[in-house]
Nucleic acid binder design. Structure first.
Ligand SMILES: [Mn+2]
Ligand SMILES: [Mn+2]
Ligand SMILES: [Zn+2]
Ligand SMILES: [Zn+2]
Lengths: 184, 184
DNA sequence: GCCGTAAATTAGATTGGTTCTAAATATAAA
DNA sequence: TTTATATTTAGAACCAATCTAATTTACGGC
């Protein structure tokens, strides 16, 4: 029996369902369903982006005044430990989270830091099963990230390189190190 | 012509070659080959692990007294921007780096934080090409991580769950949050 | 080989996202 | 209700990473 019976491929990522799944995972772990945890789960269930812990706190604080940093960070860590959400990494200094559990590929632009969800089965299910049989490693989640340059940035990049060549001598390297922008 | 002409599948990951490749990338970017940068590249070329920036600094400081944090962090950031190394993320609080450029899968254990390199082509080349054609996204590097539990930890985990059930009431959740160990 | 200059390194201060702490509060069982 | 335990909160503390200003170095040109 294969685990992937794709007969009923209903939208398992609808916010409401995602929300219920989060709560269920917390409950199963023996944790209490407090208003704060529910608010955090609701936020994660409804976002289409890849928010950082700090973003989750800031945006929740706006609608839920009084919620504390500690609670948000603890809950995010708990959800990560439970495998409900997955930590993402790229150049940014913040920790970002993946809340989309549908198997997909993250296209992470090195220039604008945009993250595009790409669907197009790369045979991830088969890979997970093969790994389990060959190594005994039991996968909980897959992180498949392609790091590179998005279509727009490819063009922008050409302009930048041209400009760089013109200015020649000085400014050999763009040095966008200190950029704090977070287009996620 | 396909890019993967596997007739001459020589060991492209031999430390010496890896080292030369790092230096070449720095040079190509118009950066100077200082003793410090060479030491850092040598360290990265020879490690079989997935070291954190802090680890690189600490271990280099032992053999190269006087090397500064700033230099190590700046060089690692530069190498990341050049695509020579790739940032990894998992539960740990430090930033870790992938120095293995051979296409492979990282098996990241959620329990012991061990990272196992797994080879077994999941069709990554094909995926990169498909993505480029369909979305215009130009991939520079692939990060394919399976997050879960390694063979040993799966067994340990069963024991832990059994113990947890026995102790019942108290200690419902292991709470290994504060663990600072870094088995990487 | 020496010079001149931009690049790089260094020690130390600073930053800021995250974690820790102890007191207050909420939850659920008895 | 009472009691025990879990959770939240505000703010302090932490510390990996970054920044800064002064010093040193690398390297092309002579
Ligand atoms: Mn995604
Ligand atoms: Mn690896
Ligand atoms: Zn972009
Ligand atoms: Zn393990």
């Amino acid at each position: 029996m294969t685990t992937t019976s794709d007969s009923t491929k209903k939208t398992t990522s609808a916010p409401a369902e995602k929300y219920r799944r989060y709560l269920q995972m917390l409950k199963k772990a023996g944790l209490r369903l407090t208003p704060q945890r529910m608010a955090i789960c609701a936020y994660l269930a409804h976002t289409e982006r890849h928010p950082s812990a700090y973003q989750v706190y800031e945006e929740l604080a706006a609608t839920h005044p009084g919620i504390s940093r500690a609670t948000v960070y603890n809950t995010l860590n708990t959800l990560r430990e439970l495998g409900a959400i997955v930590e993402l990494s790229f150049g940014s200094d913040h920790t970002h989270y993946e809340t989309n559990t549908q198997p997909h590929v993250n296209l992470i632009c090195l220039r604008c830091h945009k993250i595009i969800d790409y669907y197009g089965d790369p045979g991830v299910d088969a890979l997970m099963e093969r790994v389990r049989q060959e190594t005994g490693f039991q996968s909980v989640a897959v992180k498949l990230d392609l790091v590179g340059f998005c279509a727009e940035c490819r063009l922008q990049r050409l302009d930048e390189i041209r400009a760089m060549l013109k200015t020649a001598a000085q400014d050999k390297f763009p040095q966008t190190r200190n950029s704090k922008e977070e287009i996620v």
